[in-house]
């Protein structure tokens, strides 16, 4: 029996870039993208860049320090709403 050839072209892989980075692909599609990235240096660089860009922006906009006493103030408001 001949092996089933399952390889994405560059365009097929790049069409799935965002979904791949966001873990929104099916297992099969993710595997095919991974296979393509193993053999395609150029796409591998593009995927890495896009992933790093998202991580960089997330690193900047996440984890905002909470104002001191925020939960206490919220509790007071909730207690008032409970009255």
């Amino acid at each position: 029996m001949l092996p089933i050839i399952n390889l994405y072209t560059c365009n097929e892989a790049l069409d799935r870039l965002q979904d791949y980075l966001d873990h929104e692909l099916s297992d099969r599609e993710a595997l095919l993208v991974k296979r393509h990235l193993k053999i395609c240096h150029e796409c591998s660089k593009k995927f890495a860049f896009e992933g790093q860009l998202v991580s960089f922006v997330r690193g900047r906009v996440q984890e905002e320090a909470l104002p001191e006493g925020l939960m206490e103030r919220l509790s007071v408001r909730l207690a008032q709403a409970d009255d």
């Binding site: 996440q62 984890e63 905002e64 909470l66 939960m71 919220l74 909730l78």
Partner: peptide, 15 residues
């Protein structure tokens, strides 16, 4: 229960 749930998600909600 509400306060506990809120507390667990406070950082994300505030951000």
């Amino acid at each position: 229960e509400f306060e506990n749930l809120l507390q667990e998600n406070l950082r994300v909600a505030y951000t």
